[in-house]
Design a protein around this nucleic acid. Structure first.
Lengths: 186, 186
DNA sequence: TTGGTAAACGGAACAGTGTTCCGTATGTTT
DNA sequence: AAACATACGGAACACTGTTCCGTTTACCAA
């Protein structure tokens, strides 16, 4: 493994900061040029460090995604019931998504540029969700046969378009969805 | 009101056909030039007849939207319970959305180009949904205070990304959401 | 210190798409 | 048939993503 040049390392840091700021201000779909200008580098430099938009987004939000993943087992251990743990974890997930403008949309586009983002969610968050689902199903609190992937996609979809719009509260809708997972009443 | 020229009327028809075909083949985000080529006209002609993409989509799907709107009262009159009517109507709505690739996405983008589409849904479908919700709430079958707009946006969102993907069934997720509207169990 | 080399940079250039605009063509009317 | 209004076509512009290469810079060895 060869060491990277000092200027390259410096630029990568600068880019991460610039991207984070740009994402907050203009959403994750902010034009590449804007990020480049903000960082004071050429667009080529961005593509060299982060070949796809996914790579940049992943780099910026990596820690938060990890934190969300880590919270799953913990919630399961400390919650009164698995269903409550599931609901609480989904809440964390929703919080993460709705505070990143455009991220929910990006997550569910089939654009190849978001491949790695997709991959990270699948790799880190999906197993956590699956574990929580399993526990809740095992306790008879939700119907069996609900897939983690479809649940996460559904929840992610529900988060689209929630930008502090008072007429649409993603958390509320997600709450209904999670409630609807319970077994049919007799 | 002045009569339109014959060639203009002819072109409008041709464009509707071409757009409908293009939507089926490539989704509602098919490039304008593709539709123009298909219809054998210049892009200017499209923009003259349909200034925004919304106008074109609305023109193409107008009848189906009307049919969906008309089905609401009918379902309410013939269903065993208001909740069943609501579920059945939402099913129609979902059917409409998932068979039009990209329509659900378009519906929830804030792009100004989809203004009229948004407007038509609000104007025609929203009252129908509100009526069904009211009936169900009145019968105590769902919690009160659920807004028609948020429900329709939620349902629309859940339909995003369902392209016959076996791993994601929008209808199933919507079913859970509607089920979750029921009052909390004691 | 001083080359020499590989790594990294910048930004021009290209590609795809939406949108506008105007010279030209066509239908309509007198 | 002439004159006019309407409509047409597509070039041209704007915006964004992406690639590519001539130039610059950091690093190291002599």
């Amino acid at each position: 493994m060869v060491e990277k040049r000092a200027d390259a390392r410096r630029n990568q840091e600068t880019l991460l900061d610039a991207a984070a700021a740009a994402f907050i201000e203009s959403g994750v779909n902010v034009p590449v040029r804007d990020i480049a200008t903000r960082a004071g580098v050429g667009v080529g430099t961005i593509y060299r460090h982060f070949p796809t938009r996914s790579d940049l987004i992943v780099a910026v939000y990596h820690h938060q995604i990890e934190a969300c993943a880590d919270a799953g087992p913990e919630l399961l251990a400390t919650s009164a019931t698995p269903h409550l743990a599931l609901a609480a974890w989904i809440d964390l997930f929703v919080d993460f998504l709705v505070t990143k403008h455009g991220l929910a949309e990006a997550l569910h586009s089939d654009d190849a540029a978001f491949e790695r983002l997709h991959g990270l969610f699948l790799e880190r968050l999906l197993p956590v969700c699956a574990r929580l689902l399993e526990a809740a199903a095992g306790a008879g609190e939700i119907r069996p046969g609900v897939g983690a992937l479809e649940l996460m996609r559904g929840v992610g979809n529900l988060c689209i378009g929630d930008r502090g719009d008072p007429r649409y509260d993603a958390r509320r809708m997600v709450g209904f969805l999670i409630e609807g997972l319970r077994p049919p009443r007799r």
